[in-house]
């Protein structure tokens, strides 16, 4: 088990170094850092002095190593547009994004799995067909469109929920601000969380449905029926557990992409998270933020992958013995 985790951490480090190099290339060669930092009227001599002090005249290898070294210490330089350390900006924005993403992921699991089970067990009933039809809409409508529709319906027309922002927040500790503890924060969360969750929810529902239909046809379920086990146990103990094994991977990867793609939802709802920060930095060619965000997303995916693998180990006894044997 420990050896397994160490091995996975090793490969995670390799992935992160690779992405780090990509981020460096982005950082160094997209636009000219000096031009970004100075005004039009800065003299050439001043520019050269700045160039030298930023270390831009050193060899590429030295620069890359320095970039990676700093990145490992969470030092991503200073944002061109805000003139503040990138790490500070990201940490400030992180709680908003993580709260939105985790609540969305939770919603998509808590709603998506039961819907998938219902539509698999009710195969030809009307509600299963309805769920299938609705899920097709959920999967094919683009997120920004859903967001705009939600705003139009629930904010503009019905005036139930605010259309933008995060509501009031409360400070928890030094770094974390939460919107989950105020009523305006919760109300502000509902629309963006539903928007972001809808795609994942339908994805998970369809996955659970198809996995479950497959498992229900399998030999061990037929044998369970032949032993006279009650339908409840066959469906919810044996079939559901077997169906959820592959769902773990997808749900994990989806959580990663929920965080990565919160960008669109954050933009639609002007949600003050990292995604919004990222889009602003793209518009302003604020390369340090872009590079840091890239690394953050990569680290996120790597961490989630690791958790998924460990979860697998916990759920599927077959893997435990093989990893013991190695």
């Amino acid at each position: 088990m420990l050896a397994f985790i160490l091995r996975r951490l090793g490969s995670a480090a390799i992935v992160l170094i690779f992405v780090g190099v990509l981020a460096f290339i982005l950082f160094r060669y997209v636009g000219d850092p000096v031009n970004q930092m100075v005004g039009i009227d800065t003299s050439i001599a001043d520019r050269d002095r700045l160039r030298e002090s930023l270390g831009l005249n050193d060899s590429v290898i030295v620069q890359a190593l320095r970039f990676l070294g700093h990145a490992a210490m969470f030092d991503f330089g200073v944002s061109y547009q805000f003139k503040r350390p990138v790490a500070e900006l990201l940490i400030e924005r992180m709680p908003a994004t993580l709260e939105l993403s985790l609540i969305s992921a939770l919603l998509s699991l808590v709603i998506g799995i039961p819907m998938g089970v219902a539509s698999a067990l009710g195969k030809d009933r009307w509600y299963a067909k309805l769920l299938q039809a609705v899920s097709l809409a959920g999967i094919s409508l683009p997120t920004f469109l859903i967001g705009i529709l939600f705003i139009y319906l629930f904010s503009v027309t019905l005036r139930w929920f605010p259309s933008f922002g995060r509501g009031d927040t409360v400070k928890l500790g030094t770094y974390w601000t939460t919107g989950l503890l105020t009523s305006s924060g919760l109300r502000a969360l509902i629309l963006p969380a539903m928007t972001l969750a809808l795609f994942q929810m339908t994805l998970i529902m369809r996955l659970v449905r198809s996995e479950m239909l497959e498992v229900l046809r399998s030999d061990h379920i037929r044998f369970a029926r032949a032993r006279g086990l009650p339908a409840r146990s066959i469906n919810f103990r044996h079939a559901l557990k077997n169906s959820l094994v592959p769902v773990i991977t997808v749900a994990g990867l989806q959580l990663g992409s929920v965080i990565a793609f919160a960008t669109i939802t954050e933009t639609v709802f002007q949600w003050p998270g990292m995604g919004l920060l990222f889009l602003q930095s793209v518009q302003n060619v604020d390369v340090p933020i872009m590079a840091a965000y890239l690394l953050f997303v990569a680290a996120m995916f790597v961490a989630i992958n690791l958790v998924v693998d460990i979860l697998y180990l916990a759920v599927d006894p077959r893997l435990k013995t093989t990893s013991k044997a190695h």
């Binding site: 037929r222 044998f223 032949a226 032993r227 006279g228 044996h238 077997n242």
Partner: peptide, 21 residues
């Protein structure tokens, strides 16, 4: 109430007849 106490059935492939989990 018949399946099990009256009639039982076993299938061809023991590798897939048991729930792996």
């Amino acid at each position: 109430l018949i399946r099990g106490p009256r009639i039982a059935m076993i299938f061809q492939d023991p590798l897939t007849s048991l729930d792996p989990l």
